[in-house]
Simulated assay, not measured.
Amino acid sequence: MNETALIIFSFCMQAAIGIMLCITLGKQLSKDKQFKRAALTSAALSVISVLASLAHLGQPLSALNSLSNLGSSWLSREVLFSGIFMGIAVLNALLQYFKSDNQSLNTVLRWTGSVVGLITVFSMAKLYTATAVPVWHGVNTFVDFYATTIAVGTLIFLATSLLELQNVNKRIFGAIVLVVVIIQASVAVPYAMGLGLNGMAAQASAEILKGMSVVIGLKWLLILGGAGFLMWPVTQEAITTETKSVSGMIYVAVATLICGQFIGRYIFYAAMITTNVGLT
């Protein structure tokens, strides 16, 4: 498998979008917070994502060519919405550091970025489900992409915003992560078990996944373990005497779950077997 650039592109873009969603939620919960570090992280990840996408295309001008079929190509739509989101994320980060008092523009950018981000993830998932790769077909790809977006984005948001969230009830963020990964597992496991009942390409993918059972087991151990581990610190009151302890627990949960989701994205591409042509 040689899809490193695609792994970086999809994973970083979805993480950036998830952070933007959490910034929007966080501002609803605490209007006086700025979340500058989270905004900067979202912008940085979106830039890394787009650069990885250009590396995969081979030539930067190829990105412009890919925009020529917006009416019929999900690849064109993915490129367009990814670029728009990156622009919004970068502008939002600059606004936070140099014009944070402009609350009206700040609000417009947050909400626009969140909506564009959700459309971007949909375009990504739709692109893969429209290919000749049976293992990518169906609702599992949509659930996996949105779950990664929300879970990873929420965790990075927590890790970059702990100081600002010190006196804020963080239960909602831990609950979101836990619910999302449970839904992800409940869809992915039966989908993988039924994959071998489909055509030859799907059966070949099922054999690949069977050979990666240890890696898949590690993936779910890290994802579910990280989500469960997160629930303890975020449901406690982060009083001054416990701040370092709580922060450490959250950082461990963040690292654990993100590693699991990244392994899952590697598996996503490793199981690729086409019926005729591949990703287009």
Rank of each mutant, 00 (worst) to 15 (best):
R110T: 04
K219R: 08
V177R: 00
I17G: 10
A132P: 00
M231P: 05
I84E: 08
V90R: 05
W111R: 14
L221R: 10
I273T: 07
F122G: 09
I8E: 05
A38F: 05
A39K: 06
K219H: 00
S49E: 11
R171A: 08
L230M: 03
F173Q: 06
L155S: 00
W136P: 05
Y97R: 04
L29G: 05
A238N: 10
L45M: 12
S100G: 14
L158I: 06
N276K: 13
T112K: 08
S53W: 02
Q103I: 14
N92P: 03
T141N: 12
T275G: 06
G225D: 13
Y269P: 03
S10Y: 09
Q28S: 11
I223Y: 00
T256G: 00
V133M: 14
L57I: 14
W136S: 10
E237N: 11
A204T: 06
F173Y: 08
W111S: 05
G228L: 08
A89T: 11
L25P: 04
K170V: 05
I17N: 07
G217V: 02
L279A: 12
T148G: 14
I119V: 15
S82Y: 03
L178C: 09
A89G: 10
P134R: 08
I216T: 10
A185T: 00
V152A: 03
T280F: 07
C22G: 06
V254G: 01
E164S: 07
K31Y: 11
S161P: 13
V47G: 04
L230A: 02
I239K: 15
V139A: 01
A271F: 02
V180W: 03
L162E: 04
I258D: 03
V168N: 13
Q14R: 02
